[in-house]
Design a protein around this nucleic acid. Structure first.
Ligand SMILES: [Mn+2]
Ligand SMILES: [Mn+2]
Ligand SMILES: [Mn+2]
Ligand SMILES: [Mn+2]
Lengths: 219, 219
DNA sequence: AAATAAATTTAGATTAACCTTAATTTTTGG
DNA sequence: CCAAAAATTAAGGTTAATCTAAATTTATTT
């Protein structure tokens, strides 16, 4: 059985894995808030337990076994977030830290009962997909708002950034999951986006903001 | 902030504290499943942090601060047990281990929202009282079934023993919280109890069983 | 292709929570 | 009251997870 720390490392490696590139020690140390030396220690351990492929100085990737574990932790994290928002009336910017703890509770039965209680949600309050009990992740084709073609209407599906500051800003703008958005124009100078939200409100958001909003074009 | 282990020790000391007697090292080691030597180590630490009064060889007692902490952990444990039984359809003999983990989740807000979601329950699935947010424990006057006067009708309020084996046996006997019980007779030889449950079923339970059932006489 | 910089690993420590074995201290019952 | 038993503490170690500082490897720049 994995310790909480091992689970956190494996989850971090999972989240850092994009397009088959290996995940580097320094990148892990950054998201884990530890030193690269501590990461090296842990990588050796995770490699010995065959959760990761590891070649010294070359970065790591998850094994099959490691990926399975990662997906279970992600599943738990996201289901608990749904619980906190849907049942306990938390705001979407308040749930991450608590889910960080709850994701480590060990009980297969608990998580299946929770899933059932929540009516088998497929995405969490930030729009992130929830893997099923087998660890299969629903594949959603989504585009970044920063990449959305001009004048095409789309629906907000999720956020890449989860910090309270960002989520609260979106609350203020009136942008949430399910909102409709249409890019009216792009500012050439700084790639700011002129946006119509829910067919009424027009606003300008920075490229940085647009880069963190996932949308799906409507038909 | 306390570690999970410190919380578990403090809770164990709380549960072992009865009528102002100090709690002994060996008693703690037994319920914590550790060696007396490990307990000594921890007692030194908890004393340094002033959660307990500790004189070498004389046993320990909780300080005000320690008791407050203990009551918060007990509150969390019992609220989570209610959640598991009421909302996730767990049986009362399945919840203890999971609550053992959940009781350590750190978030004041979470526990108050949970309390609210559950409609401020005053006792857990085993009949144990739930301290309120201020740490005030409802005082229930209850008698052990083994002490209940003969032919007096009483209501089952809770169980002292929480092991799955015991709770499942009660399920089989049809004795649960809220059942009415009347002691028809006591066997002098071994103090077994002849019992009428819910005004119908008559059965015999051992003294050992009767000692672990808390009842409250009906008027 | 060096030389410098950046990334990573190794070495050596620290802290928490354990353990085993060996003192101590307290309790008990003859 | 005192010796044996029981309880408790002390000493010395282990493992997991961390750290700092130093060494090594890889990458980048002249
Ligand atoms: Mn976590
Ligand atoms: Mn999320
Ligand atoms: Mn616990
Ligand atoms: Mn209980």
């Amino acid at each position: 059985m994995l310790t909480n720390t091992e689970e956190n490392y494996i989850k971090a490696i999972y989240h850092l894995s994009v397009d088959n590139k290996t995940v580097r020690t320094n990148a892990i140390s950054e998201v884990m808030n530890t030193t690269p030396a501590s990461v090296s220690d842990m990588l050796k351990k995770l490699s010995d337990k065959s959760y990761i492929h590891y070649e010294k100085y070359q970065g790591v990737s998850l094994t099959k076994k490691g990926k399975t574990e990662a997906l279970q932790v992600v599943r738990k994290h996201r289901l608990w977030e749904v619980f906190l928002v849907e049942k306990l009336q938390f705001n979407w910017d308040e749930v991450h830290e608590i889910a960080e703890q709850l994701e480590h509770i060990q009980s297969k039965l608990l998580i299946e009962r929770l899933d059932n209680f929540l009516d088998h949600p497929t995405s969490d309050p930030h729009g992130d997909p929830i893997p099923n009990a087998k660890g299969e992740m629903p594949v959603l084709r989504q585009v970044l708002l920063s990449e959305l073609e001009i004048t095409i209407k789309a629906k907000v599906m999720g956020m890449k950034e989860h910090s309270p500051a960002f989520l609260q800003y979106l609350d203020k703008l009136g942008i949430t999951i399910g909102s409709s958005v249409k890019v009216m124009d792009r500012v050439v100078f700084d790639a700011s986006v002129e946006l119509k939200v829910n067919d009424k409100k027009t606003m300008v958001v920075s490229h940085e903001v647009a880069k963190n909003i996932l949308v799906s074009p409507i038909d």
